[in-house]
């Protein structure tokens, strides 16, 4: 059978179409965002504990950090899809 590569095994090369510079006056490099943008544009790689649902765990994170919106990427429940 023909092997199908996992998306995380695909290597890509960066090709240059034209050179340009970015003005430091606007935006921030993602790893240098100031507070509160660290949170506002942030995502947590959470280790879900076994008991509560993905939804409940997300609600706890929301309460701990005191944000208005939070959402999870891909429910982890015994009865649902990967």
């Amino acid at each position: 059978m023909r092997e199908i590569k996992a998306p995380w095994s695909i290597k890509r090369e960066l090709l240059t179409k034209s050179e340009d510079e970015t003005d430091p006056k606007y935006g921030h490099r993602p790893e240098e965002r100031p507070y509160p943008d660290i949170i506002k544009f942030g995502i947590i790689n959470l280790d879900k504990p076994p008991g509560p649902s993905s939804h409940e765990v997300t609600a706890w994170v929301k309460r701990i950090i005191g944000v208005e919106h939070a959402g999870h990427g891909g429910t982890l429940e015994p009865t649902t899809a990967a």
Binding site: G42, L46, D47, K48, P49, H69, A70, G73, E77
Partner: peptide, 16 residues
């Protein structure tokens, strides 16, 4: 089930 559950905050919920 346990393990990796990415939780996105505020504006980042758009990448979900």
């Amino acid at each position: 089930m346990t393990g990796v559950l990415p939780v996105a905050l505020e504006e980042a919920t758009k990448v979900i």
